[in-house]
Write a protein that binds this DNA or RNA. Structure first.
Lengths: 210, 210, 210, 210
DNA sequence: AATGAATGAGGCTTCATTCAT
DNA sequence: GATGAATGAAGCCTCATTCAT
């Protein structure tokens, strides 16, 4: 009859989440090395020692943080995979929409930034991100691009060979937002729309011929 | 012409450069916060105190380092600007060649990485990079893209509005090399060649019609 | 006689004893300062807070532990006192037997070790040990040695003046067991037998003369 | 021509020694675990960080401290070894004199105390002490005791088999000084004199017979 | 009474910066 | 100028103690 999670367990989970949320903010702001756990604790509203109830050390907190942020993005992306014969244009629409609504201006943007800035020094995180996000995203693009190419929708196979080309402007957008946006704001939506046009107009070429 | 640079002054300049070279390696390896001036001094073959003869503090060393790395890239890039009516394809060829030979596998790659990873926390550097590299590079692309569009070589003005689209894969290549290349190597030359095809095929479309 | 000890009270007593037993092991293993109450609680099978129901703080637990370990040894030793005109040899036999069976390889050995290693920083414990064990043991030896001397059984009064000489090898045995036994095992029984021979042969001298 | 030790080197050595001296006092007072390097630094008159110029960490400081204290004692003891056919009585006189003048009331007493109290948790130190002090001291006693036994000077071979019997009262004296002397002072000189009488009187027995 | 999550003071250690030589 | 030993502020982490449940 009893809910399987007691109040105490719930509180613990909430507390853990509060720490993760605070940690994301602090790590994103200062980077791993310069971030202070004091600040994380204060922002999370807990004592310093409390962090160590859930995490072995600073590095563990950082890794758990990034790992815990992978799952949600994934789920969304895999929804896109469902449709079998997706047109490239629809796929790009879906991906960019996902990026706009689920990443831009959200904590997930910070997660990506941290993978970019700290991934080199955290191989485990790089590996997880590659396995769970990069390779799956690439696979979807590759599959759709190949189908489009087969159907004559795409004149060539560049996107099938380098799915990274699809994601490159999103990566740039994240970095720009972090480094240059205060100097020269970037219209990310415009950028992605233009990118989509560039990529799909390629497709239109041959089809316009026929 | 002047003989005013004594041997002693030359030695001082060399020493300063040795420190800058060492600093780039160390900062690139560990990031600003985690880098240790001990390591910089050792790699430069000088005593720790010597660093402070040329640089006010760690932050100053970091900024001088990135600033000193801007000029050379710039010079090269401005050579491209010389030619008045460059075709887009030739521009891309030039830019990618510049990237391949002058950036990939060189210390400049590390400079770009540092701007990406640390730029947020060093607004002065972000501003300098934006002013000296980003805005000038964008301007070149913009100009050539507009001319190509006017000539009907490009069907639309996306690249003129978002020159960043040209650079995005290079940014991605730098990050990939730092984070994921040990997991899945990236054929950067192939990537850039594919990127060029995508961008220029767009141009071909309408011109093939006419 | 009284039925006043309820099951609950019994359980509390048992719990307290479990904590004391666990504490002895942990303190003996790590020393007072390095011992962790977490470990004590775990070994005792209670929660950490439970310790504080019986003991004011870590120091109190430590003192109670050593105090509670004094009584039993005492009782045994006082049994030896009973016999009025004990020969020195018989006394030594008794003492060494007591040491062999009641101390060696038992938790009491650890108690002695703790008095040796921590006594300096716990004057109250030193005082209790001195009053309850040292002075009483010395008194017994002194009395018997004096009687033996008076009877001409002992040629001199060294043992009466320095009863510590009787106990020194036992102290050494405890320390050796803690520090050097893994490097060079010590045959404690042999040591004590040899010690007894040394001490009593002294006694034989004059008696062999007469 | 120049002295091989520069002033700077001398200062460094002196500073290192000051740290070692301070460390001995602090470690002896508080024990390894409870000792604070802040206190060591303050007593040595240096900053906290200075300790780490000479020692890797707290443990290293502790080990170096005890190791550095071995050599001098050793040298003295080996002087005793020189004489080939030492009588037992003369050996004991020598050893006890050495103890009285070189150990009692000196920092070396604290070193021995630390070996006794911390040796269990520092196997390396236990091993070094055993190899450099214990085994050599035992060897000397063993050799002299055997010769004395062979000459009929000693009626039995207990001391040859258990040289520890010779040292036991010294060990006891060190511990007593640390734990009980404030409660009941111990006349260490008297104790050792009595001990010598006990040990040598044993010898007299048979020789008085012959 | 018993629990164990939460607390936060305190210690070890690192490292940017200084300064006497 | 050049050095590198010395400094001490600051951060991570532990653990005795408390307290809400």
């Amino acid at each position: 009859m009893s809910k399987s999670t007691s109040k105490r367990q719930e509180a613990a989970v909430q507390r853990r989440q509060a720490i993760l949320d605070a940690a994301l903010e602090i790590f994103a702001e200062d980077g791993f090395a310069a971030a202070r756990l004091d600040d994380v604790a204060e922002k999370a509203g807990v004592a310093k020692g409390t962090i160590y109830l859930s995490f072995k050390d600073k590095e563990d907190l950082f890794e758990q943080l990034l790992i815990s942020a992978v799952a949600p993005v994934l789920d969304r992306m895999e929804a896109l995979t469902g449709e079998p014969e997706l047109s490239l244009d629809r796929l790009l629409q879906g991906l960019f929409e996902l990026f706009r609504t689920q990443v831009l201006g959200t904590p997930r943007q910070e997660v990506i930034r941290l993978v970019i800035t700290e991934g080199r020094r955290f191989p485990r995180i790089a590996r997880i991100y590659h396995r769970e996000v990069i390779s799956k995203g690439s696979e979807i693009v590759r599959r759709v691009a190949q189908a489009a190419h087969r159907r004559g929708e795409l004149s060539s196979d560049e996107l099938a060979r380098f799915p990274q080309l699809v994601f490159a402007p999103m990566v740039l957008a994240v970095i720009w937002g972090s480094v240059f946006s205060r100097i020269e704001p970037l219209d990310v939506e415009g950028l992605l729309a233009a990118h989509r046009q560039v990529l799909t107009r390629t497709a239109t070429k041959r089809s316009s011929r026929s």
